[in-house]
Write a protein that binds this DNA or RNA. Sequence first.
DNA 1: CATAAAATATGAGTATACTCAACTTTGAGG
DNA 2: CCTCAAAGTTGAGTATACTCATATTTTATG
Lengths: 231, 231
Amino acid sequence: MSALSYMPKNTARKKAKPGAPPKQRGGKREKNKERTKERILEAALQLFRQKGLEQTTTKEISRKAGIAEGTLFNYFKTKEDLALYFFQKETEDLIRWFRADARLQKAPLTEKLFAVIHRQLEYIEPYEDFIGAVFYRSLQPSSTLSPLSLESQELRLKYLRFIRDILMEGEKKGEIPWVGDLGAYAVGLFYVGIVTHWLHDTSRGKQKTLALLDRALSLGTNILKKGGWEW
Amino acid sequence: MSALSYMPKNTARKKAKPGAPPKQRGGKREKNKERTKERILEAALQLFRQKGLEQTTTKEISRKAGIAEGTLFNYFKTKEDLALYFFQKETEDLIRWFRADARLQKAPLTEKLFAVIHRQLEYIEPYEDFIGAVFYRSLQPSSTLSPLSLESQELRLKYLRFIRDILMEGEKKGEIPWVGDLGAYAVGLFYVGIVTHWLHDTSRGKQKTLALLDRALSLGTNILKKGGWEW
DNA sequence: CATAAAATATGAGTATACTCAACTTTGAGG
DNA sequence: CCTCAAAGTTGAGTATACTCATATTTTATG
């Protein structure tokens, strides 16, 4: 072997796409990443439901997902972020589900809102044990301390825009007067209240919360019809 | 020295009050405890305001308070508990302050509620940086995971009872129809909304939130006067 | 005052969320 | 197939909230 074989080859090789990311479809890399993310989410969900958020360690999640502990943090900035992911996914599913239901599109506003909130409660039911720890944090405004806040803000905005759209349909059909963005904000706030009630509700099948939900929505739309919003 | 001096004296000494705690007034022990608690709170408040909740370590707080790190946990179960303490104290102060103001006792309901909420906002202003992190947690329902929840529930109940009393005065004077416990709950929920708005409000002196507070309270009482609550 | 029990303080130790420098895998270009 | 840069993985290391066995202080009692 000559010394030459150790010399660096001066074949000024092009960097593989230096600026924009390659983003090729169906590559092994992308497929693996997706599978790993799925495995983390599955492991986390199972453990959160089993032992709650605080009692589940990131070490456990990683072991169950078959990865190193450090890898988990390549996928989710924090453990809280991981928990919040379920909400993000649910919000997206919720919007898709609502838009796909033709009958619901024509239903009265009250029914629409009831259906939306009811579906959300149904979804969070299995997570009851760790939901309290995560739900309220998703409301926190952005702060330099929490790298999560931006994302949870985005989630909140997506939800508010969705509600805004539903209300606007009601406005157009003359079911309620113009309530603007504040209307969506009020519904969001109402949802917080319902979840709080739901978390405390020990009645069979959370019947009390469902009853409250029904009555409060009727009350709200009735008030709006009477023009209570003009102030 | 004889071996006898090592023998246990068999003078069957009475245990100093075995059952009930001594609870003596003005003792050195009680005085020291109070002073230490004050020193911890002072140090914590200063640091929280300076660097926020997350960035402040318990080691720092202890050092500033002139105690060992372990001692801090003899006074407050968790760091969160320490932060929550400010709210507890404020709620107690708030109730005292309201009851001491004779003019306010006779004012219309809207003014009472505005005064109460406005004072709360004023109080939390200096804590803005860490309030978001603590405020929403104080809403979480009890859970075996969080040893804090019981206390924060108690705090919430104290506040709700206070609001309930104010509303009851309005009911008696015929300012609003009977709203019951749910009325207090609604005001509490409204307060959550106002604080959320306040946290996001970048207008000078939080003017927008104050305007919203004023208008929303008028709207609310007007609706109630019209009998909107009957459902 | 002397003593013991109870209350409180202490800080080294533990558990765990998260970081980071070193290692491995992938895929484009030759 | 070979090379190499970029992407991704790894687990030992770090920071820090909280625990607990031991030491110290206070108080009640003879």
